[in-house]
């Protein structure tokens, strides 16, 4: 326990030092405050927004967009990825066209989605879902195709049907790579929500970035960046704790004591 605290302390040295230098530089006027305000100013502006009640509105709409896009993208990827991984026919049918779509940079969809769905929520959520889809899909397919044939034979000895094989062997065996997929999918989700909100939104953390630029208030931009970082890290930590809890059985470096 004590050594763990020591390790955290070690990791805190540089961030604390940087923030202290930053604060000092802003206070002593080494940097112009209209370019880089002091950390305390940034925190104050966050607190101010929280008191006004606008902070929660911005955060919740952004969380909603990421959440909805993530769920839709992941669900589609699980469904299609499981079919492609398990059935050879589905692979030959679907994988070529999906790989072709994958080579389109996802941001290139933006104008088309705006044209089709307007500037409201559907176009943003769709963009995020597309971004989340591919890493999850790729990892599920490779996870399923990488399941040890020898384990599947054990199921066949017990006359498992396809559903039982999937549920009792293939799903748990491909869980590690599925979790890697949804973690990188979530990361991309956060990236795409910024893109979607930069391009046209009236609220959300990405909108705060634009607002900060247009009103020359860097503290707003930095506040938004900090909130993005905190939310991204928080949601990733959530997935990571699910991951390490459900993968305790793995015989790997991570689990070595």
């Amino acid at each position: 326990m004590k050594s763990k605290l020591n390790l955290i302390g070690l990791g805190m040295i540089l961030p604390v030092l940087l923030i202290a230098i930053w604060e000092a530089a802003a206070r002593l006027g080494w940097i112009e405050s209209y370019l880089l305000p002091a950390p305390t100013v940034v925190i104050e502006s966050i607190i101010e927004m929280a008191q006004e009640g606008t902070l929660w509105a911005h955060v919740s709409i952004t969380l909603y967009r990421v959440g909805a896009g993530f769920l839709i993208g992941t669900a589609a990827a699980v469904f299609i990825g499981a079919a492609v991984g398990y059935f050879k026919k589905a692979e030959h049918l679907l994988d070529p066209i999906l790989q072709a779509f994958r080579s389109i940079p996802s941001l290139a969809w933006v104008p088309l989605f705006l044209l089709w769905m307007g500037i409201g929520e559907p176009s943003k959520v769709t963009l995020i879902a597309v971004g989340v889809f591919f890493p999850v899909y790729l990892n599920i397919v490779s996870g399923i195709q990488g399941v040890d044939r020898k384990l599947i034979e054990v199921g066949k000895v017990y006359h498992f049907n396809s559903l039982q094989l999937v549920r009792r062997i293939i799903l748990p065996a491909s869980l590690p790579s599925f979790l890697v997929g949804i973690r990188s999918g979530l990361g991309l989700g956060w990236m795409f929500v910024v893109a979607a909100e930069l391009l046209g939104a009236s609220e959300g953390l990405g909108y705060l970035l634009v607002l900060g630029q247009n009103t020359s208030s860097p503290e707003l931009i930095i506040a938004s960046i900090i909130l993005f970082a905190a939310l991204g890290k928080g949601t990733d930590a959530l997935l990571k704790s699910i991951e390490s809890r459900s993968l305790k059985w793995q015989d790997n470096l991570q689990n070595a004591q």
């Binding site: 034979e153 054990v154 059985w249």
Partner: peptide
């Protein structure tokens, strides 16, 4: 069947492996 390798499910405990069938 007993194979050359144990072929246990790594995510199941010994007991659950025994009851795998």
């Amino acid at each position: 069947v007993i194979f050359q390798e144990p072929r246990l499910m790594p995510w199941l405990s010994v007991e659950d492996n025994v009851l795998f069938g």
